[in-house]
Structure formats: C-alpha cells, structure tokens
Design a binder for these strands. Sequence first.
DNA 1: TCGCTTCTGTCAAGTTTTTCACAGCCTACC
DNA 2: GGTAGGCTGTGAAAAACTTGACAGAAGCGA
Lengths: 226, 226
Amino acid sequence: MKKNRRTCDVPDATIHRLPLYLEKLKLLQAIGVEDVSSRQLAESLDIKASQLRHDFHYFGGFSRPGRPYQVNKLVPALEQIIGISEPQPTAIVGAGHLGQALANYQNLEMHGFPVQGIFDVNPKLIGLEIRGQPVLDMDEIETVIGREGIRIAILTVPATAAQAVTDRLVAAGVVGIFNFAPTDLKVPEGVIVRNERLAVGIMSLSFKVNCAVKAARKKASKPDGE
Amino acid sequence: MKKNRRTCDVPDATIHRLPLYLEKLKLLQAIGVEDVSSRQLAESLDIKASQLRHDFHYFGGFSRPGRPYQVNKLVPALEQIIGISEPQPTAIVGAGHLGQALANYQNLEMHGFPVQGIFDVNPKLIGLEIRGQPVLDMDEIETVIGREGIRIAILTVPATAAQAVTDRLVAAGVVGIFNFAPTDLKVPEGVIVRNERLAVGIMSLSFKVNCAVKAARKKASKPDGE
DNA sequence: TCGCTTCTGTCAAGTTTTTCACAGCCTACC
DNA sequence: GGTAGGCTGTGAAAAACTTGACAGAAGCGA
C-alpha cells in the first residue's frame, strides 16, 4: 500500500521521461538486446545516468546493485506504471483534419492506445471510414464510451465546442483528456487534462531560433568573442 | 548589448510560458481590455502572479511600479521577444495526414507562421491543393527556402526519412525544426529542434489517469482516509 | 578463493525554478 | 493635500529537480 501511494507521488519531470525510457527500451527489445545499464540507456537519451537511476528509484528500482537492467523485465514494468499493460481504448472526438490525422497515426495503437471510436457532429463526416472505422455521430458517444470502457479521449474539436464536449465526456466516464483545442477546459477534480498547444510549441521554437540567429550574427561580427 | 544577451539567457520554463501569456493577452486585446494586472493575468493562466512578474523581469519588465500592464504595449513586446513581429514563413515537409492537418490548421498563420510551402516525395500527393497551395516536389525545397527566407520547418515525414530530410533543410538554411517524427535528429550547433512526440504526451496522460483512478478507488473503499 | 571491474540503490550536495516579502510608485477618493 | 489601496520590480527564501559520490552486490578471470 505504501509503495502504491508512492507510485503516484512522482515529479512531473520524471513522468515525462518515462515514455522516453519505454520507447528506447522497446527499440532495444526489438533488436534483441537483453541487458542494458543505466549509463547506456541514459546516454542514448542524452541525460545523466544518475538521473535515470533516480527516476527509477521512485518506483523502487528495477534491478539490484551489480546487475544491469533486463530489457524484458523493464518494458512490462514501465508499461504497468504508465498504465498500458492492457491496451487503453481511446476515443477521438472531432473528425476534422487533425482528428483524421491522429486516427490514421498507427503509432497510437502501437503504443497501447487503440482508437475505438471517432466522433463528429458534421453529417458530411459521419460514416467516413478511417483505417476501417467509420466516423460516428456524437450522439453515440456515451454508448460507445460505456461499452468499450473508454477512459481516455483525444479532443480535436473547435475551441468553441471544446467545453461542451468535455462535459459530455466526463459525464460518460472519461478520466483523461488529451486536448488539442486551443482553449482551457474546466473539469471536476479527478479528471486529468493535458493540453497540447501546437501554437505554443512553435512559438517556443521561434524564440530559440531568434536567439540562435542573433547569437550567430554577433559571433560573425566579433569572431574572437567579446 | 548587455540587455540583448540577457534576452536569450532565460529558463526553459519561462520560455514555454511566453506563448501562453501572449495568447491570453491577444484574447484580452480582442475584447478591448486595455490594462491588466499581473494578478489578473496570472489567475487566468492558473499560475502565481509573482511568477509572471518574475518571468517578465528577465526582459526588464514591461511597466513601472504602481501601473498595471498595458495590453496594447505588452502584445507587440512579447511578439518581438518571441520573434514574430514579422510573420515567420514556414515550410511543412511531409504532406501525409498530419502534414495536411497542420497545413489546414489556420491558427498557424494567425500566430505568425504562414505556411509558404508544403513538400513531399510522393507523386500522388504532389500538386494536391491545400488551402490554396499545391504540394510541391521535395526537389524544389532548397529553392523555396532560399526564395522565401524560410527559417522554420515543420517535419511530418516518416521516422526513416527524418534525418535525411533534416540534413537537407539545415543545408538550405533552416534554423528551427518542429519535429513530429518519432525519432531523434542530429543537427549542427546553432540549429534548434523541438520534438513533438504525441505518443509521449498520451503516455504521460495515461500515467496520471492511472494514478487518479487508483486514488479514486482507494477513496471509495476508505471514505474517511487512512 | 581472491581481487578487479562493473553495476545499482541511495543519499547528500549543487543547481535551477518557484514563491514570498517588501520597497517604492501611482491613482483615486475624501 | 493627504491617505488608503493597489500595482510593479526586485532580491531573498523556499521548494523542486539534477548531479555527484559512494557503499555494497554481482560477475569474471586467474
């Protein structure tokens, strides 16, 4: 019980690295690597080995002193921690361009998130087949969420519709929302929202590009440093 | 000169908040709000006012003690800092589903990143019109990057092609790459890569959902706490 | 068996980021 | 004019995160 509680008391920074670890490990697994040391794994991710071990330490560690990590044990352990030991059925709400793109993105299923329903209100889109699945009418969403036990939904509707859709999703039992709409969502406690703001991403990039360009210019005009 | 250098010596965490500030401010501007205090702005973003002021402090501050921020001055100031005072022409490389979705995403242009070229190697896609622009052959990419002065590219090609395309982009003068391919890119110093890993995002979400569900179950079985 | 190397788990030190606290400025109202 | 209330800029305190250091376990070869 104590250990279980700890499992959730983990810094955000660590949480965001877990998927990266898992991804690399799956790659190693695919090419038949059996053992991997913290140093090897960390180097391939461009982080320090001590950080990786520290991250793993939150979960009690995955090996013993003297023994490297065993890829075949680490992969399922991480999958369990992330919550994808069992595939997590996922709904995509909003079958516009972005929704379609994500529905087509086979990596989602590969990573444990099979798309079990694509929904839209637009009659022109309903019935359209994407990777073998028809776009369904929003009216069916409660039924499908209940039937498939969907807990995670990907939101790709216009900002104006996002809150209303969110309310329906939450009422139907969805606990996690991956929000691509450029708006903030209000949800009751216990429901998790992750905002994926493309515009924010590209602006952060732009800031750094701006800095890099300035730095390069300065360097060019004063090649020997200040 | 001193001030300029400082402009780039800013924590990542702050950089990622700048676009959020700008977004909110534009919203306020659109509805005619003239003044805004750090507390008001911070509250709407669910952060502390002191953090916002601290962030602004990296750039010397945007007001004087006693006076709230003026929306109409803050917006262009942030745009300048982010590097979008002038629209930043942008290329999308890879016209698959995701590339098309992003090309259709009008918010990109609205935020200062007009798409000036969409490229692919697939003859079936070349010529396809997206928002009035034809998909171009990859062979033209160097020409277009040079002609339009493109510094930022969005990469939506398969992982296997990502590195080769990156090398071409960098050679042609691109300085910032917004990478949607699930692979790490090697670039020379001075070139900025921002990885947007959808799978990582949804796994982080899944971890938290998992925790929330566990917590809810525990609470249900022991309503009065431990 | 012994010594050597490699490895993890663990904790302390170091660094970065966030939050607090407050001096001083500005407006508005009495 | 004076005073109260609200505001920013600023630096110091607190919290969070990363890195370094090391004890002890395991494997390997002689």
